[in-house]
């Protein structure tokens, strides 16, 4: 049985270790809106923020060139930082870059590796809780959109998506549909129909 749960709602009557929950002697409670699977005791976030892990691919915007390092806006509670000596091309404020998380430091700074400029195109910001669904199992959803639109798409786990070329409007529509319907089943099929030009 799966159900939608909201912060403070009891998931189990015994303390269980699940991410984004708190426990007391009476049970375990969710701290976020999520989809809770009673049998598997899993909580899938419906709304949630990005929690940086090393190796995460992110997209950000250069906020400041500090000479020895770049400050990168990740639209997150964390400030991105990349050392300039590891960057090949000169970057300037306003540039959109993709990068990899090295680690989250104390005080809320995310150290980034290999920031690479993404030229042209546009970005869109979505709830980071939706990025796994947009990517899909083994990249399947993303591949479907890319092939259906001819748009180049890079997804940052921090919820920022970069798009360039092809039928960019259609790609945007498809992504927004996934954002809205991430918790439903049969989504892959509906996106397929959308991309093939039939009204869903």
């Amino acid at each position: 049985m799966q159900r939608i749960v909201v912060p403070g709602e009891k998931l189990t009557s015994t303390p269980v270790r699940i991410e984004n929950t708190i426990s007391d002697k009476n049970g375990t409670y969710t701290c976020i809106m999520g989809y809770f699977d009673e049998d598997r005791k899993s909580l899938i976030p419906l709304e949630g923020l990005w929690q940086p892990r090393s190796g995460d691919n992110v997209i950000g915007v250069i906020e400041e060139d500090k000479g020895t390092m770049y400050l990168i806006n990740l639209k997150a509670p964390y400030k991105g930082l990349a050392l300039a000596k590891f960057v090949d091309a000169e970057l300037s404020a306003g540039d959109v870059v993709s990068a990899t998380v090295k680690q989250l430091e104390k005080g809320g700074t995310v150290m980034l590796l290999k920031p690479t400029r993404l030229n042209g195109g546009k970005i869109m910001a979505v709830s980071p809780s939706r990025t796994p669904r947009i990517i899909g199992k083994g990249n399947s959803m993303l591949k479907q959109i890319t092939e259906g639109t001819g748009t180049t798409i890079v997804i940052g786990l921090n919820g920022i998506i970069w798009l360039r070329g092809g039928k960019i409007d259609l790609a945007t529509t498809a992504i927004l549909k996934i954002v809205e319907e991430a918790h439903t089943t049969g989504l892959t099929e509906r996106i397929k129909v959308l991309l093939s030009g039939n009204k869903v």
Binding site: V6, P7, G8, N20, Y29, C31
Partner: peptide
Amino acid sequence: FAASGIPMTDI
């Protein structure tokens, strides 16, 4: 706040 996804212990 609950809709924002910022974790909270209760509403």
